[in-house]
Design a protein around this nucleic acid. Structure first.
Lengths: 266, 266
DNA sequence: CGACCTTTTGATAGTAGTCAAATGAAGTGG
DNA sequence: CCACTTCATTTGACTACTATCAAAAGGTCG
């Protein structure tokens, strides 16, 4: 399967059409099937870890601190259910939501390098998180290479994800950034086989704004504008539940930055 | 060394003083010694990889493409020297510098998850990069756990680094963001035992601005203001070389956001 | 030298931040 | 059960930071 081609360096201006499109297009064929399979992959990964490692199962409620910056690194955590926010604290006191985690995601990779966690991981909903001793995981990985693969893929995904966040913050105006946040949340649910037409935000406007690099007022206004444009609707219950009639409309809005698909009223 | 404490979950509002300070303070003791040791660690890591794996050594010049988004993932790359920028391309064409890499850093982690790289890595100066087949690395890691550790630490550092970038972009105003960029560059050089009083920017204002989420004009103005405040100086040669009289002054500026230490002229 | 790119700086516009007030939601205790 | 406190959210008015547009100066390389 792996070609044995030696790495070939592309000199400046030779990079023209070397396959950069193949990788991007693979997702869009059968959305349903892709979701099912990624949901299944997550389930398989959890089952594998559960079998090989007997992780300690922790029930968490909103607000619980799963691991804390500065704390000694012993365990990685694998989410079986629930939602978690990752918070980074700079030495001069700035606080920043730097990530959101869902079922199948791992927590605590940042602790490997310095033997201390560098972020807080805080549950924003009830759920179950599995604690896995890193040394035990390493040991098991030597016997079961598939485990090691799992671990590396999770770390790789996290790196790619963080870059997407940075791109979003750096390139999109406020409204599109909020739209992209909702899209990301909906996609994350979809990958895990959950409903995406209605999503319950587990974060305050202030937390969302912090994550997206804007103020809570700007988040509120952006949501109001998205609602006025028909891209989202607020559930009758409260403004914390958001309906997304069609995620693709959000996507085109993020890309275009323009008014919704057909220039609606106003 | 490792305590065998089972993970203890902190319930909401119980997290008060659970060691979150210990981790932050460890860096500041003897700066010289820390730099030497981290420089030595990098050298050791390179030597270890070189011994275990016989990597293919690639000479690169500014502009060379080391790996490209969409390309099949075979190799990780370890930088022996030079400087590299990482560029992410969104499906709708936005282009974003999402990282900078120095000696001892690895490239290509983002490719593990999907078997394709998701970013371009482009040299911005001459240097030497080692290509290491991922399958060979995995195999060697099973025999030499210290190699596996090296790999995991590198990935962990990258994750922590990306979060710092996000925090900087989200929480700092433009001038401080540029200052933080210079500080980061200087720190990166210092960790590798290189001179930090004068640094040669290998990126245009446009690239820096893209990386920091601002326009090239804003970068230029920020640099001018930093120079006027005495926090940096331009080398007589050209405005591409920047002198940093004292990095700590930059640090306090980033934290305070205020005018330089003593309220100077103007 | 001349074409081209990068950088600087100014003038102006626009987006997002700040301040403030009002409404809404949720929980506490009388 | 309702009054009362508290926190989250919305919206408006105004400010300020950064983007945009434009022109000129500085560098680089054939």
């Amino acid at each position: 399967m792996l070609t044995t081609a030696t790495p070939i360096l592309l000199r400046k201006n030779e990079a023209a059409n070397a396959g950069s499109l193949q990788g991007q297009a693979q997702h869009r064929n059968s959305e349903q099937r892709a979701q099912l399979s990624s949901s299944q992959q997550i389930a398989d990964a959890l089952a594998l870890v559960s079998d090989c490692l007997v992780p300690q199962r922790l029930m968490v409620r909103a607000g619980d601190v799963i691991c804390q910056a500065g704390q000694r690194f012993d365990c990685l955590y694998l989410m079986n259910s629930g939602f978690v926010k990752i918070i980074s604290l700079s030495c001069d006191g700035r606080e920043q939501v730097v990530g959101l985690k869902f079922r199948g995601d791992w927590l605590g990779f940042d602790g490997i390098a310095n033997q201390r966690y560098s972020c807080d991981a805080i549950a924003i909903d009830t759920g179950e998180v599995w604690a896995i001793r890193y040394d035990a995981l390493l040991e098991a990985s030597l016997r079961r290479p598939v485990l090691l693969n799992l671990l590396h893929q999770a770390m790789s995904r996290e790196i790619a994800n963080d870059r997407d966040s940075l791109m979003s913050v750096c390139t999109l105006p406020a409204d599109a950034r909020v739209a992209d946040f909702l899209r990301y949340w909906a996609d994350s649910l979809a990958k895990r086989g959950l409903r995406t037409d209605q999503i319950k935000l587990r974060m305050t406007r202030a937390e969302i704004g912090n994550y997206l690099g804007m103020t809570l007022e700007t988040v509120s206004r952006a949501l109001s504008r998205l609602a006025k444009a028909g891209l989202i609707e607020f559930a009758e219950g409260g403004r914390r539940d958001i309906l997304i009639p069609e995620v693709d409309a959000l996507r085109t809005f993020i890309q275009g930055g323009m008014t919704p698909a057909p220039a609606l009223l106003q």
